[in-house]
Design a protein around this nucleic acid. Sequence first.
DNA 1: GCGGTTCCGTTTACAACGTAAAGCTCCGGG
DNA 2: CCCGGAGCTTTACGTTGTAAACGGAACCGC
Lengths: 264, 264
Amino acid sequence: MTAPDEDADPDSPEGRGGAASVIPAAPAGSGRSGLDRRRILGAAIEFIDGQGLNALTMRRLGAYLGVEGMALYRYVPGRENLLDGVVESVIDELYGDPDVHLAASHGWQDYLQRLAHGVRRIALAHPEVFPLVATRPPAAPWVRPPLRSLRWVESFLDALIDTGFTEESAVAAYRAYSSFLLGHLLLEVSQKGVKISPEDHPEGVPEAAADTDLSEYPTVVRLEPLLSLDESAAEFEEALENLLGRLEVVLREGRTPRRGDRRT
Amino acid sequence: MTAPDEDADPDSPEGRGGAASVIPAAPAGSGRSGLDRRRILGAAIEFIDGQGLNALTMRRLGAYLGVEGMALYRYVPGRENLLDGVVESVIDELYGDPDVHLAASHGWQDYLQRLAHGVRRIALAHPEVFPLVATRPPAAPWVRPPLRSLRWVESFLDALIDTGFTEESAVAAYRAYSSFLLGHLLLEVSQKGVKISPEDHPEGVPEAAADTDLSEYPTVVRLEPLLSLDESAAEFEEALENLLGRLEVVLREGRTPRRGDRRT
DNA sequence: GCGGTTCCGTTTACAACGTAAAGCTCCGGG
DNA sequence: CCCGGAGCTTTACGTTGTAAACGGAACCGC
């Protein structure tokens, strides 16, 4: 079903190289006994990708690994920690992505562009996992967003500061960038999440939905084809470019612009 | 504790009029017997605001209402549905907000501005609830974002179309606006969510955290004061204004700008 | 008044969850 | 041969969401 050519999304799974596959871990119940934290986290990710987050329970994950559920507790302190680990693991895929660099060797715009697409690739590869990134309470109070690892935050700030941003504007940029990524990807991922409805209406009237009464919302109904059109890639690109443009202004003016600009 | 004057956030709880209080419902366990769906949803919101989302269980919510837990099932089909109802209720607070209008009587910019602040007020009033807005699977596949109610989507699209947007650009605007709101508010809310840590360090060194080793992240450490500075209100304003500016361009050009047409 | 229905809340019940604690089972070093 | 520990399983407990049966009050037409 997925239109394979035409204007294929460069961030779609397998669109780019080898990133987005977590761990070479054994397929499912094969590689017996070699249990360890990484294998567990890898399995958890596979499991969530396949069965959804709600389906993930300790016992089921155990079974998925050919083991008894309680066995996991030898390597993982508990479920919450496991989920934290999952998030961390998923974000760590960035390190394996050859298109994403830790340093801004080709300018900050290139750096941010690559980073954004790297994160998007991850989000699209693990749509069920990604919301966790947004929801899990952060280890450090700042570091909220998509790049939850301190190492990435460090890299981000360094990259910008090295290329001329002031500290203030680098931090401002970090936040603007983060919330852009978070918002856009969350929206995109959850839009994909709802497939074309697994069952239902094998025939009968396609409009005038069965569950809710749409007759009060004529515009929504009329624009439905537009609304359900998926332009995410282009929209992402546009919003990203706009953001970069905004940051460029910040850079040039050396400060984060304030309304009415009465500064401290 | 909350610095009351200075440059008070206009969207902070009680900053604006009467919105952001769900339902006049009885305080806690007072108004006995009059159980019904709205009262339950109201109580659930209060409960989540007070005890956090994780603490919400059917039995506890029952107890909070002076009732036996199973009693709730007469009015609510189940927990999932309850959470959906909570989200819906919270969004419905928009209707009670005198500053937010359903129609763009003072131009679309005014409309979007008011709407954005209305949603922000809600997010700040219910920081524990808001992430649900982002996470809950949507009833209709499109309609993803902060304004989950079809009525608001309808209103949004009408407002823009009435003031000159094409259908395509109205939809594009809807998405850009949504993801902006979602991202920014989610970030903001979860940043506030982590208060000054309920317990711990009643004394001792405030920096050089006890749990993780920050020594590898000198920039993060150095910028920590900046990073934890809370400029959310200003940042929100700036990003919102930028977005509106972007939409204005879209409006003027009558189309959603595609990659390729430049205008730096 | 009175039997019956209907409403609403309680009780009881159960499977599944996260997790503590104790029990196996094997394995390499004395 | 025995031992101790690593690694997994068993058993156990409290809590969760929810189905089903239950009780009692409030109302109905008579």
